[in-house]
Structure formats: structure tokens, C-alpha cells
Design a protein around this nucleic acid. Structure first.
Lengths: 183, 183
DNA sequence: ACCTGAACACCGTTCAAGT
DNA sequence: ACCTGAACACCGTTCAAGT
């Protein structure tokens, strides 16, 4: 793994726990074994680093969703795959989806970072909409419903993280399913 | 308004836009017209300031919910009053509910701040549960359902803020209602 | 191509000193 | 009781200098 990749990996872990504000060039440099001034050679500003991070995150999501779609056409399985990804972050030291934590810090983000954050939402909503279409929904109903599902799932993660309690995440999702919001 | 109240007011506005990390003693002091060292006289640490802020926020919510409950027993009206409070933050310069933004920054918060943040959730869920009981739900069903409603509404705000678009908040809530999650 | 030390203006915090 | 300037260790960023 080259230095740039090492920086991105360390930054991602930190960002999902402490957010954009919690990213420290000096701290990351220490982890990677270089000086903080050298980090600016790879990422000139903190905005550049966060932008690369968010871009990678959206790219990864796009790839994973494509793989899941290739493996199953069962709407419930597809949605479960999505909720499992966010669940994993909680289990992993009460971390958050990068989208959620960066959305909360939106005011601090450079425009190019915001664009990538929004792209993760777009990619996710498109994936969830595909699952709904597979269950027989029309394209535009699926789109609106998928956006609501995305918001509800992100909210469940936020609330569960606020309590430091994965069980709350599971309980909230179960209620969504019982109410008919999730398949 | 005394100095302490002026500090709290300025801090609340800033925190709902930029979060805990966005609070700057030097910036707040400038707004209030004192030196940053003086700010530490009123709030020894940033944790003390955030704690007072979160406590005030939960207290305010408790009072508002009591007033709303005294004015109406219509579940739809009560839930609407809750969603309107979060809507107001978005309209007000794309700000967030203090609960949502501080939950995202949970890892940065002192324990006494976390307790107050969790209290806001508790107060909110209790209020929403009362609305559900008024519509005929049993106590424990209402409790689980209220938690899911709270998470979904916070998520709607997070996603709408991520887009800088209040209309998304309204659209998502409309879908929640259509799905039967909200009354 | 990649790294570094030193400097800059920021930050929260402390403290001795003022009124 | 309330405020202040100065100092401390932090922060992102810049830059001239090294290999």
C-alpha cells in the first residue's frame, strides 16, 4: 500500500468516528509515519483529503451495490444488505456512515466535498429504488419511497449512535418494517 | 440579558450551524464583547458550555411539549408540532436540531454533555409516545413506535440538510405519512 | 518525486494580575 | 464578581530547503 492509500485508510477510520473536524493532519501523519508537512504533498488541504475520502466512499458504495444487485433480486435481501452496511459501522466502535457524519458537518465542508457526499446519497437512493421496482413499484413512487427509506435508516443510525447502542438500531428498523416503510 | 445568557444564545446559534467543533471561544467572546479568557470565567471548559447548551435545549423542549400537550389532544396535531420544530431549524439558514448535530459528534463530547443530549431524545420520544397513546396505542407499542418516528424525523432533517433543501424534508415526511409511520 | 523544519495565525486552557 | 494579557500546547497551511 503506498503512502497515499495509507493516509486515506487512516483518515477514513478517524472520520467515521470523529468526523471532518476530528481529522488532524498531525495525528494522521503520526499514524502513517511521516511529518504533517509531508501530508500536504499528497493532499494540499484538508478539503482535498475529505474530498478524496468522500469520493472513495461513494465509489465503494456504487461497486458494492452493483455486486449485491448481481447476486439477488429479492427486494428484502437487497434492503437488508443496505441496512447491514450501516449496522457494521455501529458495531465497529460505534462509528457512523461517512455520509451521515459529514452531512451533519456540512457547513464546514468545501463545495467539492459536499458534491461527493451528495453523490453517496444519490447512489444509495438509486439502489433502494431499484429494490422497490423489483417488488413492483412504479419508477417515481420507488424514487420517493427510496429517499424516505434512506433518511429513516440514516436516522436510525444517528439515534443508535447517540445511545451507543446497536440494539436500538435493530429495534428501530424492526418498527420500520412493521409499519411497512421497509420491505 | 446578562453575559452568561448572551454567551449561551450566541453559542446555540453557532452550534446548530457548525456543531460542537465549530464553537470557538475566541469567536463567541468577540460576539459578546469580552475577551476569550473571560469566557472561561462563565464556562470553565468547552464541555461546560456544551453541557449548559444541551441542558437548556432539553429543558426548552420539555416546556414546549408540555404547552403543546395542554393545547391539543389530536395526535396528528401533536406530531406536526414536533416536525415543525425541526423544520424551523432548516428554514433558519439550514441549521440542525442540536440533538442531531451533537449525536454525530458524540465521540467529541464529555459524558455530562452526552447525558443531556440523550435527555432530549428521551423527552422527545416520551412526547411522541403520548401522542400515540392518545390515538389508542398501548403504552409499550407507543414507546417503540415513538422511537422509530423520532429516528425517522431526525434522519429526514439530516438528509434535507445534506442537500440544503427544506423541500426534501417535507417530501420525506409526506412519504412517512403515506407509509403509515407518522399519523 | 517525496520529505522536512520553521514559521504563521488559529485553537482551548491556565494563571497571575487587575478592577 | 468579573475581566484581562500573556503564555502554553495544539491546529491547518505555506515555503524554502533538502534528498
Amino acid at each position: 500500500m503506498d503512502t497515499r492509500e495509507e493516509i486515506l485508510a487512516a483518515a477514513r477510520t478517524t472520520a467515521q468516528a470523529h468526523g471532518y473536524g476530528g481529522l488532524s493532519f498531525r495525528e494522521l501523519a503520526k499514524q502513517v509515519g511521516i511529518k504533517s508537512a509531508s501530508l500536504h504533498y499528497h493532499f494540499p488541504t484538508k478539503g482535498d483529503l475529505a474530498g478524496a475520502l468522500a469520493q472513495r466512499y461513494a465509489d465503494d458504495a456504487e461497486r458494492i451495490f452493483a455486486e449485491v444487485l448481481a447476486a439477488s433480486k429479492d427486494p428484502a435481501v437487497l434492503v437488508r444488505a443496505f441496512t447491514d452496511v450501516l449496522r457494521l459501522a455501529l458495531v465497529n466502535d460505534n462509528r457512523m456512515c461517512l455520509y451521515g457524519i459529514l452531512s451533519a458537518e456540512r457547513a464546514e465542508l468545501a463545495p467539492e466535498v459536499r458534491i461527493e457526499v451528495e453523490r453517496f446519497a444519490e447512489v444509495s437512493v438509486r439502489f433502494l429504488a431499484k429494490a422497490l421496482v423489483l417488488s413492483g413499484a412504479s419508477e417515481d413512487v420507488a424514487r420517493a419511497r427510496a429517499l424516505a427509506m434512506f433518511a429513516a435508516i440514516e436516522g436510525a443510525q444517528l439515534v443508535a449512535r447517540g445511545r451507543g447502542d446497536v440494539a436500538a438500531y435493530d429495534a428501530i428498523l424492526a418498527t420500520y418494517r412493521a409499519a411497512g416503510l421497509l420491505p
